[in-house]
Computed example of a mutant assay.
Amino acid sequence: MNQNPLVIILGATASGKTKLAVQIAKELNGEIISSDSRQVFKSMDIGTGKDLAEYQVGNTRIPYHLINILEPGERYNVDAFKNDFYSSYQSIIENKKIPILCGGTGMYIHSILQNQLYTAVPVNIVLRTKLEVLSRYDLIQKLSDYPVQNIKHADRSSNKRLIRAIEIAEYLNHHEIPSIERPEIEPIVFGLKNEVERTRSNILIRLEQRLQNGMVEEVKNLLAMGVSKEMLVFYGLEYKFIASYLSGDINYEDLKVKLGNAICQFAKRQNTFFRKMEKDGVKINWLDASLPIDTLKRQVLELLAENRILNVKI
C-alpha cells in the first residue's frame, strides 16, 4: 500500500456522495475529510446538507473532519481548507486509517490534487473594485504590464479569472510565497454522476424535505444570532433565497421554484468544473449514481484493488 493514499469521492449536489463515502470508510477502516465550503460552519446543518445521521453505519460511527469547525459569520477560503485538509490528513495517516475526501466543492478538491501555490494569495478588495469596471481587452492589457514570471499562472478564459490573475501578479510584485512541504499524496478519484432529469428530481425532492425539516427556521436562527443578510448571501443559494423570503422580497412558492432552479443550475456548474479538472489531467472514475449503494461500493472496491493503491480484498 502507498504510504500516502487518498480516496476521493466527488459529485454534484444530491448525487449521494456522503452515503457512498461512509460505506467505503467502513470497509477500509477510514475517516472522512469533508471538502464542502459551507459544512465547516456550525448551526448551518440543513441548508448545507450535512446529513450527519449518514455517518452512522449500523453500530459504527464513521469519524469525519472539517465539519462544524467555524462559527457562522466567519469566512473560509481555499487556502484555509488546504491547511486544514493536510492537518486532518496527517492525523488520519498517523492513526493508520484511510483518508477519504468527500464533497462537491471542486475548487477545494482541485487545490489538493494540483497543490496550487497561489491559493495563498489573499483577496485584494480595493484592487478588485478598480478592475471590475474594466473590459476584457483592458484587463488583458493590464495583465501584460506585469513581469512574465508573475503571470505564467494566468487563466484568461473569463474576466473573473483575469482579475484574479492580476491580483496574484500584483501580490507577487511585493511578496514571495513561502514553499510549504506537503506529503506526496497518491489519490484515486471517483465521481458520481446522474442523468440531468434524475439530478433535477433528486434536488427538488431533497429541497422539499429540507424545507419541511426546518431550513427556514435555521436561517431565522442565524439572523437572530447576528449573522447579516449580506453574509447569508455569501453562504450560498439556500441562505440567500430564504433570507429574501424572510425579508418579504419573495413569497413561499417563489422561494421553492427559484431556489430549486438555482440549485439545479449550481449542479450544472459543479459538473462543468469537474470536466475542467479532467482537462487539467485529473482522472475521474465515473460511476452511475442511480445504481444501488451496494453496487457502487463494490465498483469502488474493485477499482481500488485493481489500482493497488490500497490493500483491498474483494
Rank of each mutant, 00 (worst) to 15 (best):
Ile32Ala: 01
Tyr245Trp: 15
Gly104Cys: 07
Leu304Glu: 00
Glu54Met: 07
Ser157Val: 00
Arg75Phe: 12
Val40Trp: 02
Pro292Asp: 15
Pro178Phe: 06
Ala262Asn: 11
Asn271Tyr: 10
Thr295Asn: 09
Thr105Trp: 06
Leu237Cys: 08
Ser135Gly: 02
Gly106Tyr: 10
Gly226Tyr: 06
Leu287Arg: 01
Arg161Asp: 01
Val7Leu: 11
Ser290Trp: 14
Ser87Thr: 15
Ser228Leu: 11
Lys130Asn: 05
Gly11Pro: 08
Pro147Ile: 09
Asp294Tyr: 08
Asp51Ile: 00
Cys102Trp: 15
Leu304Pro: 12
Asn83Tyr: 08
Val300Ile: 07
Asn2Arg: 08
Lys97Leu: 12
Ile163Lys: 00
Ile32Gln: 01
Arg275Met: 02
Gln114Glu: 13
Thr199Trp: 04
Thr18Gln: 03
Gln116Cys: 08
Asn59Ser: 09
Ile92Gln: 10
Ile109His: 06
Leu6Trp: 09
Gly49His: 10
Pro292Trp: 09
Pro122Met: 07
Gln299Ser: 09
Asn271His: 13
Ser228Cys: 11
Leu20Pro: 01
Ile67Ala: 04
Ser15Lys: 05
Glu27Leu: 04
Val121Thr: 00
Arg156Met: 11
Ala154Asn: 09
Ser35Asn: 07
Tyr235Glu: 09
Ile163Thr: 03
Arg200Pro: 09
Leu134Gln: 09
Ala224Val: 10
Ile284Phe: 00
Pro122Glu: 00
Gln23Tyr: 05
Gly226His: 08
Lys17Tyr: 01
Thr18Met: 04
Asn124Cys: 01
Arg156Cys: 13
Leu172Gln: 01
Ile151Gln: 00
Asn124Trp: 03
Ser43Tyr: 07
Leu10Asp: 07
Ile250Ala: 09
Asp36Phe: 06
Val57Ala: 05
Ser244Arg: 14
Glu208Tyr: 06
Arg156Ala: 06
Ile250Glu: 05
Lys97Gln: 05
Leu131Tyr: 02
Glu195Asn: 11
Phe241Arg: 00
Gln141Gly: 04
Leu237Phe: 12
Phe266Tyr: 15
Pro63Ala: 03
Glu302Asp: 13
Asn202Ser: 04
Ile8Ser: 04
Gln141Arg: 07
Asp36Leu: 07
Pro183Asp: 00
Val233Ser: 13
Glu27Tyr: 05
Gln149Ile: 12
Gly73Asn: 06
Glu197Ser: 14
Glu176Gln: 06
Val312Gln: 04
Ser43Asn: 11
Ser244Gln: 15
Phe273Tyr: 15
His65Cys: 10
Lys276Gln: 14
Asn115Ala: 10
Ile163Phe: 02
Leu134Ala: 04
Thr295Pro: 01
